[in-house]
Amino acid sequence: MTGGVLDGKTALVTGGRQGIGRGIVDAFLASGARVMTCGRGERPEDLPREVAWSRTDVSRRDQVDALAGQAERELGPLSILVNNAGVQITRTVTETTDGDWDRLMGVNARGVFLVCRAMIPRMSAGGSIINIGSISGRTADPGLALYNASKSFVHGLTRSIAVDHGPAVRCNVICPGWIMTGMADEAFALADDPEAATRDALARHPVRRFGQPSDIAAMAVWLASDQSAFATGQCYVVDGGLTAASPLNPGLF
């Protein structure tokens, strides 16, 4: 490994099995960091050998405490924490069950809190926490009530951590737009005409393409690196320009 911006740093990424989390794991590795990731299942077969894996449900306090202990043994003091693990449930408030609440808020809200609480004391000075929020935490996606609300929670918690735990750690949130992951594929598959839906969605992105996990990972590398040493408490939107444009684009009608 030659001269990466994260040389000598250690990183824990939650939810690194696939999608954005996996993209961040790969980018951190390529930038010279030692990386550990976790998920609720067995270690993915294609995870690079040098990445440590912990089977962890971040909504469970006992499992998060075990994760923190394992991270300390494997990596030593932690320089970078990425709270990426999240779930999405497509329901409005009146459709949502108590079980939905527990499952979604357990991972997206409590999980972020538990991991931060366990890891902040174990982080090295100048550490960087990167939470994955969403553009849906700023403006609403229809039918994703708890998901939207959980991401607003992440945005708020990010500011609190930045304020309360600076200068020891920095804490920022990345708000991805439409990133081509399993979650987005599911949305298009539900469309009456998936091809037309895809065309319409593309037209709403000034960059005329959807995001890739690597687009979010590139921002995560920057926020993890010392290049962003003055950045804390902020929401960084990476969405190909989607939310810069009005939802009402007469050119599309």
Binding site: I135, S136, A140, L190, A201, P247
Partner: peptide, 11 residues
């Protein structure tokens, strides 16, 4: 409510 929404893809 226009700007409360994320862009409305026509799915």
């Amino acid at each position: 409510g226009l700007s409360a929404q994320v862009q409305q893809m026509r799915l």
